[in-house]
Design a protein around this nucleic acid. Sequence first.
DNA 1: TTTGGTTTTTACAAATTCGTGACAACTGGT
DNA 2: ACCAGTTGTCACGAATTTGTAAAAACCAAA
Lengths: 227, 227
Amino acid sequence: MNERILIIEDETPMRTALADLFASENYRVLTAADGERGLERALGEKPDLIILDVMMPKLDGFALCAELRRLANDVPVLMLTAKGQVEDRVTGLDAGADDYLVKPFSTVELLARVRALLRRMERKAKLPAKLKLGDAEIDLVRQTAFRGRKAIHLTAKEFAMLRLLAEAEGQPVTRERFLDIVWGYTAFPTTRTVDNHIAGLRAKLEKNPDEPRWLKTVHGLGYKLEL
Amino acid sequence: MNERILIIEDETPMRTALADLFASENYRVLTAADGERGLERALGEKPDLIILDVMMPKLDGFALCAELRRLANDVPVLMLTAKGQVEDRVTGLDAGADDYLVKPFSTVELLARVRALLRRMERKAKLPAKLKLGDAEIDLVRQTAFRGRKAIHLTAKEFAMLRLLAEAEGQPVTRERFLDIVWGYTAFPTTRTVDNHIAGLRAKLEKNPDEPRWLKTVHGLGYKLEL
DNA sequence: TTTGGTTTTTACAAATTCGTGACAACTGGT
DNA sequence: ACCAGTTGTCACGAATTTGTAAAAACCAAA
């Protein structure tokens, strides 16, 4: 609780408005008025989340974000982009932002996104490196899997899907979400592709792929990992 | 804990300010007012980290750093460069500095960088100096390798790649990371170059290069060292 | 400048993974 | 039991990724 949020925004009215908003929601607020100071604070004070305007003097949002990632800093970043610059989304996500929001936005939506990001990070932190599915054991970090003594080969995509399922802690994951997270914002395969990969996982991990014990389908929604 | 930091800086006000800053953070502080004395103390007292001004009489920061490295001293060096001399960054990292900071800087950022460097070194220290890959034995520090009694010749790049793989503790290392860490900021070879070097390592270290036992490829991601 | 070693590029083959579409099987509601 | 929509599955071609050899570029020392 009481997460610390760093707001990096050069326009003072917007910066104070955001600061007030989050303060009133009981977050602890840090601010910076330009990119360079923002980077300093991000590195020095390790906030739980960063809200970052794209357009800024000295060091723009993209560069700042890219630099953070280069330094292996994985604090969640929510980018604010000016209206119209649709390109920004791709560029921003490319630079390593976790989400983005187009100005003007509603405070309700902003708060929702922030909560979502913080929740995602919390789950990721709790995520154990190893998954045990009966006699199958999967190491999500090393990307290895064993059934008893024998190694099972999973592809990169399969590991990514498992990781997403595990992060969801038994909650259903929609096909759309699989595509968004695992495939990313540049590829747009059919949602059926997801099913195929699930089939692959079941074939490799389930004792009886016809009657999955772990990789359950949630009819009309998607899939979930039953722990 | 209580790491010892050597500050090499000719301008007295700055030197004492830095000394006070680090003393107040419970580091043990050593100082030197010029490059030659700095080098002496660096060699004689083996500090845990050196903060080094680039501009100095007698022996400048680049030369000092290069000399340290020539003597196989791998103490982490953080260089302070005057504003505007953008070139300094490249030159500094070239000379073997581990990080650099442009004056004027905030104390918060300086402390953050120092902590980061010390942490990085700590991790490196935990790394065993010798790697045993079957009957091949590699000394990562001395940069020597033997297969039984016969010496195997590895190039500098190959050692650096092995070190990175070993540091990752069996986790996959992406090609991008290889380029970032092994090649650094100044060179931008193709990612295929990484593959070629891996091939070289396999040829020299693996009993059967076609079926690597240690240097595994993680399709779609990179490579890992299977311990 | 030549030399010897190292690094990088390039090109092509081989291996792996991916995406799709068709159709069967299944689901839940009526 | 029937129906419309959803999911499982399979095979195949496409696309991507990797292995590797050979040539070119590079670089420091003689």
